[in-house]
Design a protein around this nucleic acid. Sequence first.
DNA 1: AAATTATCGCACTGATCGTTGCGTTAGGCT
DNA 2: AGCCTAACGCAACGATCAGTGCGATAATTT
Lengths: 188, 188
Amino acid sequence: MVEDVHVRPGGRSARVRASVHRAVEELVGAESADTLTIPAVAARAGVHPTTVYRRWGSVSQLLADVATSRFSGDVVVPDTGSLAGDLERWMGDVATDLADPDVLALMRATIGSGPEGGCACTVDRHEQLGAIIERERARGGAAPDVERAVDLLLGPLYYRAVFSSRPASSQWARGLVASLLADRAPSL
Amino acid sequence: MVEDVHVRPGGRSARVRASVHRAVEELVGAESADTLTIPAVAARAGVHPTTVYRRWGSVSQLLADVATSRFSGDVVVPDTGSLAGDLERWMGDVATDLADPDVLALMRATIGSGPEGGCACTVDRHEQLGAIIERERARGGAAPDVERAVDLLLGPLYYRAVFSSRPASSQWARGLVASLLADRAPSL
DNA sequence: AAATTATCGCACTGATCGTTGCGTTAGGCT
DNA sequence: AGCCTAACGCAACGATCAGTGCGATAATTT
């Protein structure tokens, strides 16, 4: 237990972190996966490699940190008045995000960095989806369970993003909502 | 055009390729992604690093080759007499394959190696699914189109494999077939 | 069986990675 | 404003990666 150690996350530390994160996002989008190294990130961020080694330890840990930061944030879920409207709006936004080549590059690099890589990319999306479904329930409406919604909405969307060479359109993504809402198969 | 160059894929070349592929599969399953390097693979395979550099060039290209080889093969699709039966059997097999930690590790490494990494992992599954659907059509039955089947069957399955820390059960995977066959939403 | 030459291994070299000790800078507390 | 010390940078070093020229092995053809 190191509760008497006082970290200093302000000022220079915060600037270092921001520039390192930006450097990672720029490098994964611009170059081959093989070239993402700590010295390359440090050079691009304008900091010393030792600083990056000491702070993050390895490319895997750095990518997990960047992905967690990039793929999360304040939950801004739409409120159109209906579950279908909310989900369609949200799916369109997620699809637009996943159509960005730089976002996809960061995601691939993070997945490749280890077993927890994929989770780091989607944890926030699960929370957002849960919030949408919770709101519909609060409105008194019937809503599928979150797990089923993740499977039938995020499943096909992220599959196309990672496993195919053609990104999904927002229109196609919104169309998945109809499948989910029509889904009557037992959820195992 | 190098049509007068005669490659020699037999004997020692074939043995080198097999041992390098096996080394890659063993290493991605046992160690961190950062440690998959050409010298490490060569040492494990019992060949010289130069051989691997000259044959495959980079870790990315090596992974693509290994994944394409590992995730493809003769299409053995089940024939239970009904589309539901065929799909349930096939989905159970795919889920069992994806529950293997070593398979998942190879898949993550291949995804992380570049934009075509994901495709290398699933191209054969698409062909198998197409064959199942084509057979149902040949039987005179109605079948969903392949794209929709990929979205609603492989989408959730591969999503869980890559983006969650809990692997899908064969039973759950088979349950997706009911969703697909009940799907009446317009396919965009 | 012999010839041709693709493929592999060895030795070597330059480049890069990854870590450590220690001094400098500056965040946060009093 | 001053103090304490976390965080950063620098220099150095050992380890490893990545690539090349050339000889050895062996796949394939004749």
